[in-house]
Amino acid sequence: MVYKIVNKKRPVNLDILTISMPATAVVSILHRVTGIILFVGLAFLFYIFDLSLASQQGFDQVANTLQTSFLAKFIIWGVVSALMYHFVAGVKHLFMDMGYFEELDSGRKAAIANIAIAAVLVVLAGVWIW
């Protein structure tokens, strides 16, 4: 009856401040952080989506604000950056589900590639927005 001793069903040592963070861990925690950013950022996306489809005036207002307001550009860049990162990390996750990048070496390389690809996409998104 060994299983009776194991009454905790989930890992307990998850105090992230006490854990050393290799590239793979950074990629993992950023996947979570960008997920939270996206969930909050959705409010902004829903707002501009609503306004842009409400009327011609609303559409013009959205287009104009996104072309002139630094704050609006910064917010949309932030949300799009989070989306790009989350997307790349998600694709990496699907590859890992299929059994790739599970060894220490390939896992580390995939994590670094993830950060590099996401960084390029974040810069490209910035160029696109500005």
């Binding site: 989930r10 890992p11 998850l14 997920g35 996206l38 969930f39």
Partner: peptide
Amino acid sequence: SWIGLWSISTD
């Protein structure tokens, strides 16, 4: 987002 935020909050 439910599954993601649920995982994070339970951790």
